[in-house]
Amino acid sequence: MAEPHAETTAGVEHGAAAPHVEPNFYGLTAPMFIGLAMLVVIAVMIWQKVPGAIGKALDKKIAAIRDQLAEAEALRKEAEALKAEYEAKSAAADGEAAALLDRARHEADALLTKAKDDAEALVARRSRMAEDKIAAEERAAVEQLRATAADAARRAAAQLIAERNDAAADAKLVDAAIGELGRR
Rank of each mutant, 00 (worst) to 15 (best):
L39V: 12
A43R: 10
V44H: 01
M45P: 00
M45N: 11
W47C: 10
Q48D: 15
Q48V: 12
K49P: 04
P51E: 01
P51A: 02
G52M: 15
G52Q: 15
G52I: 13
I54A: 03
G55V: 12
G55P: 08
A57S: 09
A57F: 10
D59S: 15
K61Y: 10
K61N: 10
I62E: 07
A64R: 09
A64N: 07
I65E: 14
I65A: 13
R66S: 04
R66D: 00
R66V: 03
R66T: 03
Q68V: 06
E71V: 01
E73R: 01
E73I: 06
A74Y: 06
L75A: 12
R76M: 11
K77D: 02
K77R: 11
A79E: 05
A79C: 09
L82C: 10
K83A: 15
K83E: 14
A84P: 04
A84Q: 08
E85A: 06
Y86N: 13
S90A: 14
A91I: 00
A91M: 08
A91K: 13
A93C: 07
D94H: 04
D94N: 07
E96I: 01
A97S: 05
A97Q: 03
A98W: 03
A98L: 00
A99P: 00
A99N: 00
L100M: 07
L101P: 06
R103L: 09
R105Q: 09
R105F: 05
